[in-house]
């Protein structure tokens, strides 16, 4: 077999086209290796080459998933690749969703092996880990070398149809697949070994991890919306001008609570976004595009809702750790309950 032919999928940022202001670009192809493709190809040490790179803006993909997938697949299949690598996307949420979506579609519709890489908290990992191999990466592009070192050996096995080891051995996100194999110790002995380790506070690996079923059942509907006090919460990073609480533009460590008593409309120059994960221009021009204060005030006046809660809560959902956003919301939800809020509108960008 000659060199393995790879088509590489990346976003506008890694292609060097631009940041968020270019996230709307449609899929395009270049017959060369670009950005992370250089490190990837080098990792294959001559066994494979990147024959083309398909680039798509993350917002375009996120907002037009079905069309974008078709367009990307059309570009990819022209090159008859043996393998498609998407990303790695690290902790970039939209990029992860795109990379996972592309990898899944390539496998299902083109029948070509595909692989991607993501940080464990990337929403794309949860969405696609069952259908494609997603290598576990660090949470930022600083982990590129580590990602390449994990992607290359697994990719080679996929292309060559070799047996793939366990998630721990091959460093991919567990896919929930159980495999039978022979072992020299029977189950009862392994269980006792594990128990002894547990009693001695030593590390051990379970053979049957419990799936994470953290679902919260929906609350009953609001009975009378015309009497309800409604609060706004956002991950879109809307803050008073100047971002007084210094909410981070990514990986937020804090949230803000802002008083909107008497505010009928969020005007430019008084409100803005702290979000660093998308083009801020539209939110800075008119923050009502992210949190609909103007419309809720109208509905309040018309008696269509009881009232708009005096405070809104805001953070930046951009690579922000799940543990942080959980902690923020646990805290402010207690305040919302204490303040007699009946319903929440949560907006995300």
């Amino acid at each position: 077999m000659g060199k393995i032919r790879i088509v590489h999928y990346i976003n506008q940022f890694f292609a060097g086209i631009g940041g968020e202001e270019m996230a709307h670009i449609k899929p395009e192809v270049r017959e060369e290796k670009i950005g992370p493709g250089l490190a990837l190809e080098a990792g294959f040490k001559g066994e494979a080459e990147i024959v083309a790179t398909v680039i798509c803006g993350d917002s375009y993909f996120g907002e037009n998933m079905e069309e974008a997938k078709v367009e990307v697949l059309d570009l990819i299949k022209k090159y008859n690749p043996d393998l498609v690598i998407a990303g790695p996307a690290f902790n970039a949420g939209r990029y992860g969703v795109a990379a996972g979506g592309v990898a899944e579609a390539v496998q299902q519709e083109l029948g070509i092996p595909a692989i991607t890489g993501m940080y464990i908290e990337n929403p794309g990992a949860d969405m696609y880990k069952k259908s494609v191999y997603i290598v576990e990466t660090k949470n930022s592009a600083a982990g590129m070398k580590d990602a390449v070192d994990k992607i290359v050996p697994l990719a080679l096995k996929l292309v060559k149809g070799e047996e793939i080891g366990s998630p721990a051995e091959e460093h991919y996100h567990a896919r929930g697949i159980r495999k039978n194999y022979f072992t020299d110790k029977r189950g009862s002995a392994r269980a006792v070994d594990m128990l002894i380790k547990k009693l001695n506070n030593e590390p051990f690996e379970t053979e049957f991890p419990m799936p994470d079923f953290d679902k919260v059942d929906p609350n009953p509907a609001v009975k009378d919306i015309t009497k309800a006090k409604i609060a706004i919460v956002t991950s879109g990073g809307i803050v008073p001008h100047g971002n007084p609480d210094h909410i981070e533009s990514s990986s937020a460590q804090r949230y803000g609570k802002y008083d909107i008593e008497g505010v009928m409309d969020l005007v430019e120059g008084e409100w803005e976004t702290a979000h660093g994960g998308h083009d801020p221009i539209y939110a800075n021009q008119d923050a009502d595009r992210v949190i609909p204060v103007d419309v809720l005030r109208d509905l309040e006046k018309e008696g269509k809702i009881g009232s708009l809660h005096r405070y809104f809560y805001s953070t930046v959902g951009n690579g922000t750790a799940v543990s942080n956003s959980k902690k923020f919301a646990e805290e402010f939800s207690k305040e919302l309950v204490a303040d007699g809020v009946n319903a929440v509108i949560l907006t995300s960008t």
């Binding site: 907002e63 949420g93 929403p123 969405m127 953290d214 679902k215 609350n219 919301a329 309950v337 319903a343």
Partner: peptide, 26 residues
């Protein structure tokens, strides 16, 4: 965040563009 608000007993509606992410976060 949406899950913690719901867990606190307040009905919450998530308004967002990438629906699959919203489904994933619960």
């Amino acid at each position: 965040m949406v899950k913690e608000i719901e867990r606190a007993g307040i009905p919450v509606v998530h308004m967002c563009t990438v629906v699959p992410i919203s489904l994933t976060v619960g």
